[in-house]
Amino acid sequence: MRLLQMISCIGLLLLASAANAGNASDHTNNWAVLVSTSRFWFNYRHLANVLSMYRTVKRLGIPDSQIILMLADDVACNPRNAFPGTVYNNADRALDLYSNNIEVDYRGYEVTVETFLRVLTDKVDQAITPRSKRLRTDENSNIFIYLTGHGGNEFLKFQDAEEVSAFDLADAFDQMYQTKRYKEILFMIDTCQANTMYSKFYSPNILAVGSSELDESSYSHHADSDVGVAVIDRFTYYNLEFLEKINKNSTLTMRDLFESYDPVKIHSHAGVRTDLYERDIAHVKITDFFANAQAIELDDYEDDESDV
């Protein structure tokens, strides 16, 4: 009887181990694509949103060589800025997000729908596009894609001049899948009616989250009276508040992050789409997307006595 109990326990342990293995990430590198699609002074908060996410992923180890940063870059030196050469995300101005440590890959009128989609699918002109401005991912890459700006039902504005649709984005992701440009994607968007932007996705291994439902606005968190405009959006603010607790060795999961969303605080209903994603988000570490993974290969080493 005792032998049967031991065999049963071993079997349960093996099943549990297999289940955990199925939920473990085996990606080898992390990338981030961070885009503020707005321009003009009154959209200060969108620049602060994207620079805040940029600071977070860099703090957690994703290097600039694996971050594509796209923004209008017209706020820090705007004549209305009471604090020239700076961008803040909090009214106490404790942290300048616009420092010597930022590397902008696409700025101003380079930030277009065409450029964004070409970067995702690697259809840029490789003869004239530096490696630093290309998304050089592969089938082992986890990619965090963050968008912020002004949106509507199944569209996102780019600099008040054009729009990218939910269909455009879904097709771009499918091209990425077909050409083996990612292992998993975390798509996050902070706009009005944000959740409609991931409604058309159909490619596997995409985890998507947005700030607001259809016909809902995405609201700013607070303004700085000296700056004169709102300095961050609510959805991004509360994501950052949670992510500040994270370090590279954190065991917190994506489910922990999603369960922290409080519609009372955010003033809208954040949405999460998991049906295209294969792993259980309860076992997906936040660091699988927001931190950096490095592939390490160990070679057998034998002392060569002839060299001694």
Rank of each mutant, 00 (worst) to 15 (best):
Y277N: 11
I102V: 11
K183G: 08
E163G: 00
D64N: 15
I62N: 04
L15E: 11
R234P: 00
D256R: 14
E302L: 04
I266D: 03
Y177G: 11
D300T: 13
V35I: 10
D190M: 05
T137S: 15
L97K: 10
T129M: 04
D275F: 07
E241Y: 03
E297H: 10
S17Q: 09
A76D: 07
R107N: 03
K183Q: 15
Y198R: 05
N78G: 04
T112R: 04
H46Q: 06
I296C: 04
N239E: 11
S199C: 08
H150W: 13
A270E: 01
T121N: 07
M70Y: 02
V104F: 07
R80D: 13
V57S: 04
E302I: 10
T115G: 02
K58F: 01
A223R: 14
S220K: 07
Y198I: 03
T179V: 07
D304E: 12
F116R: 13
Q294M: 06
D26R: 08
E297P: 00
N90M: 03
K285T: 01
G11E: 02
G22L: 14
P63G: 00
I145G: 03
A295E: 15
A127C: 02
D215I: 05
I185C: 12
R279H: 12
L12W: 04
Y237C: 05
G85I: 01
F290L: 12
E216P: 09
I189N: 02
I128H: 10
S132A: 06
H46C: 02
V113F: 12
D280W: 06
D190W: 01
L13T: 13
T236M: 02
Y238I: 08
T236A: 05
Y202V: 01
Y202W: 09
K183I: 02
P79T: 07
L95T: 12
N249M: 11
I286V: 14
N29R: 10
M6N: 06
S141R: 07
A293E: 14
A161T: 14
N249F: 05
E139T: 01
I286G: 00
Y182Q: 08
F289T: 10
S203P: 02
D96H: 05
R118V: 10
F83G: 10
L4K: 05
M53F: 04
V57H: 02
W31M: 07
D226R: 10
A194Q: 13
M70L: 15
E216I: 04
F242I: 02
D168L: 11
C77L: 10
N249A: 15
M6S: 09
S212F: 08
R181S: 08
N140E: 13
S260Q: 07
I296K: 12
I296E: 10
K245W: 06
Y198Q: 04
S165W: 00
E216C: 02
N205Q: 14
